[in-house]
């Protein structure tokens, strides 16, 4: 009996930090946020429970269009990160051996030693009207006047891909690393060409890595605030900006909290749809 209660106590103590962390920092704030999002101001310091804040999102075109734009651009950024990251990962995992492999893998990691803010400012120094690239093009005689390369969607996209690359490359390298070379050789030996071997052997094997990389990149891009604001300017219309505006500028916490929950719900829905489409399950991907 005593033995049993001792084990129980040990288990409880071991679980305590994670339980406290989840309860105090994740569950409690979210419950409170949910309460906030569900009330409607009817007068000074007078509130009523209603879905008005959620309804507002669907009736005001600006809001849901901003969300749609955010989601679509995040999906594009995810796909582009995958398209660029896959060959990079394949090269690191399968074509290289030993020191060169570790070196290139480390190179992917190096940008993350600098804070995201500094990295984004780095892009601004390169791309702004009086920036490095604009001056270089003028000096080479390619353009006659200064060129502004900031504050457009293409630049935001570049920023997203740059920020996300590592989160795509890491899971891809580890799944591709586990692909036995002889499977690829067998694919060729039995008459496959580069395309069929990629489609029938390499991609099915890498699928868990592809899916987990895509989920991480999609969620990070969707919830990104710095990149769209700094590279896209005030009119970048990113959904996180809307939330920020509601909370800080408009001091409309009720609306901001509702938007936060909508972002959570809608992005989870998109991830779920993506998993269904790729016939993967979350446990498969994480395991």
């Amino acid at each position: 009996m005593r033995m049993q209660s001792a084990t129980r106590l040990a288990l409880f103590l071991l679980l305590a930090p994670i339980v406290l962390w989840l309860a105090l920092l994740v569950i409690l704030p979210h419950v409170d946020m949910f309460m906030v999002s569900m009330r409607e101001r009817v007068g000074i310091r007078q509130y009523e429970y209603s879905f008005a804040n959620y309804v507002e999102f669907f009736v005001e075109p600006l809001y849901w269009r901003t969300f749609a734009r955010t989601a679509i651009m995040s999906i594009i950024a995810t796909v582009m990160t995958l398209l660029i990251g896959f060959p990079v990962s394949y090269y690191i995992a399968k074509m290289l051996r030993g020191r060169m492999k570790n070196f290139l893998f480390l190179l992917c990691l190096v940008p993350f030693w600098v804070s995201e803010l500094v990295r984004t400012f780095g892009w601004m120094i390169l791309l702004r009207e009086s920036g490095v690239i604009s001056n270089l093009m003028q000096w080479m005689g390619l353009v006659s006047g200064p060129v502004e390369m900031l504050y457009n969607d293409a630049t935001i996209m570049v920023g997203f891909i740059y920020t996300s690359m590592l989160f795509m490359v890491v899971p891809l390298v580890s799944t591709l690393d586990s692909l036995d070379d002889s499977l690829v050789e067998a694919g060729y030996d039995l008459g496959g060409n580069a395309f069929t071997v990629l489609r029938t052997i390499i991609i099915p094997h890498a699928m868990p890595g592809i899916v987990s990389g895509c989920i991480v990149v999609f969620m990070l891009t969707l919830g990104n605030y710095l990149t769209p604001v700094l590279l896209g300017g005030k009119d970048s219309l990113w959904f996180t900006e809307q939330i920020y505006t509601q909370f800080i500028t408009r001091f409309n916490w009720e609306q901001g909290a509702a938007f936060g929950f909508l972002l959570l719900g809608l992005s989870s829905l998109i991830v779920w749809a993506g998993l269904r489409l790729s016939r993967q399950t979350l446990s498969q991907t994480m395991g």
Partner: peptide, 19 residues
């Protein structure tokens, strides 16, 4: 190239496609 040669190979670890 190997995919056009009329010989086939049985690999040491067999290399059956697990997918």
């Amino acid at each position: 190239p190997p995919n056009r040669r009329p010989v086939n190979m049985v690999f040491q670890q067999l290399a059956l496609f697990p997918m």
